[in-house]
Design a protein around this nucleic acid. Sequence first.
DNA 1: ACATACCTGACTAAAATGGTCAAGTTTAGA
DNA 2: TCTAAACTTGACCATTTTAGTCAGGTATGT
Lengths: 141, 141
Amino acid sequence: MKLTSKGRYAVMALVDLARFDTVNPVSLRDISLRQGISLDYLEQIFSKLKKNQIVKSTRGTQGGYVLSKKPDEIKLTNIFNAVDEKVKTVQCKKESKKGCNGKATKCVTHNLWDELETHINSFFEKKSLEDLLKNNSERIN
Amino acid sequence: MKLTSKGRYAVMALVDLARFDTVNPVSLRDISLRQGISLDYLEQIFSKLKKNQIVKSTRGTQGGYVLSKKPDEIKLTNIFNAVDEKVKTVQCKKESKKGCNGKATKCVTHNLWDELETHINSFFEKKSLEDLLKNNSERIN
DNA sequence: ACATACCTGACTAAAATGGTCAAGTTTAGA
DNA sequence: TCTAAACTTGACCATTTTAGTCAGGTATGT
């Protein structure tokens, strides 16, 4: 299972973006400075966020990024999927048409991971950017 | 967050163990053959399971491992903790007594990860080995 | 005594992570 | 029109983690 800082950075950056300015584009340089995330790394992340229609970009001077939906329409699942943070548990080695590990049946843990995945995903599907904004409205960074 | 095959192997091996013989010790060699897990790797895993009082060992010929508790008393949390599969989300860099990333306040995602961690742990705390045994009673491996 | 099975620790190849670096293209504004 | 700010793309890389292997033990039932 993966759930690393790329996903965390993505969330941090989007919260920053949403809070800082809802109308004018916000530059990655500003986000980089405020959140302490490498600019180059942010660019990779936002490239993916853009492909997944989570943000829109404006080029040129005074350019930057804006959310492409309202914060309550952006679920955390969307964000994690966008940056390839697949909430996927370890897979059994799939051997052709057989079960796990080349055996005839599914391995004993197969259903377990499926269940867990569903469980975690449901958590992320309920949470939106909006929720995080409310939760942190008193903070500066 | 970590949740990799070491934890999965531990669960597979324990289910195998529990189902195969509840009285006599089961050798790692047998588990290794039945589950297709490297013997050397199993030994590492069982060493940790033993330290955490999840299994008991008997040495010598006809030796092996037995569960040290009843299957319904062994929760998945116990297993994952034992093999160092800490269900821990990515941490913010902790700077001395300050907040995350050297700032004065907690970062916006801080609470989120805490919440997620609790959510996942509660899933694993509810699930016991017994549950897995029941779920897979019709299977062979 | 000897085979079986547990026990321990060092080691390692491959993959993932968390970035950096370089070389653009686009566009607002002077 | 020129230029700097800002987005865009893709290659590259050091470090860490993962998923083991290998080599040597030690203990014990028969």
